[in-house]
């Protein structure tokens, strides 16, 4: 569905991603894990068109995404749940959701949008309770749900999630994870970027490990969960083993 070949991304003259190749198949959850500054968010921003300075090939379906602006990429069916949620804080929850369907709010599709609005509020009941409230007054977890709901309002084929668990209580993380699973069951394809590697790998089909702008490891999620190297670096296990001999 989505295929990246030898993608390199630049911020000015600084190269943040140096040749990443990865693929996402229809109906999969793919986890992209890695430490701070590994380039995970950069990669998602590149796919969604927010970062336009890149080289290589990105194909979605049968066509290339090169040179497309964010609205065109949303139109093709890729929506981003951005890092830090990026809601519109003074606007109501309902208006935030409606903005997600911005490109669809024309003539024929209008009724469908109203239906989707109900569907999203069924998925996140708390958003219905707070629909008239300003988005900025929601708690962190509620804001994350709103960000996901807003992205889903565009009816994407592929959902990109940038650190959905960031700064949330464990209970909330669990809720988000369950929602992602529900989405997968309904046929959605997900590309998930996470620092919370354990949560991400537990629901993912496959995973990629990103380090300093390169993929250093990839494979089925279960294998990655069991991998010693991943355990050491990202799961915080066998800490003793890691420090032994130095102390």
């Amino acid at each position: 569905m989505l295929r990246l070949r030898n993608v390199k991304c630049f911020y000015g003259r600084i190269q943040a991603i140096s040749g990443v190749s990865l693929s996402v198949r229809q109906g999969e959850i793919i986890a992209l894990i890695g430490a701070n500054g590994a380039g995970k968010s950069t990669l998602l921003q590149t796919i969604s068109g927010l970062l336009s300075t890149w080289e290589g090939e990105i194909e979605f379906g049968k066509s290339s995404l090169a040179g497309l602006k964010p609205p065109e990429i949303v139109q093709r069916g890729i929506s981003l749940v951005p890092e830090g949620r990026m809601l519109f804080p003074p606007m109501s929850v309902l208006d935030n959701l409606k903005l997600g369907a911005y490109l669809r709010y024309r003539g024929r599709e209008r009724n469908q949008v109203e239906k989707d609005l109900e569907e999203i509020q069924d998925l996140f009941p708390v958003l219905r309770e707070r629909s008239r409230q300003a988005a900025g007054t929601l708690s962190g977890g509620e804001q994350q749900m709103l960000a996901m709901g807003r992205a889903l309002m565009a009816r994407p084929k592929l959902l990109l999630l940038d650190e959905p668990s960031m700064g949330l209580a464990p209970f909330m993380v669990q809720l988000i994870v369950e929602t992602l699973q529900k989405l997968k069951e309904s046929g959605m394809t997900l590309l998930l970027v996470e620092q919370n590697a354990r949560a991400a790998l537990q629901i993912a089909d496959r995973g990629y490990v990103l380090e300093n702008g390169r993929i250093v490891l990839d494979g089925p999620a279960q294998e990655l969960l069991a991998d010693e190297e991943v355990k050491r670096a990202y799961l915080g296990k066998d800490y003793r083993e890691f420090t032994d001999g130095r102390m």
Partner: peptide
């Protein structure tokens, strides 16, 4: 109004 808050976020939801 979304533009007023954050141009980047507006672009992310598909606003030109």
């Amino acid at each position: 109004r979304s533009l007023h808050d954050s141009e980047r976020a507006s672009a992310a939801v598909g606003i030109n």
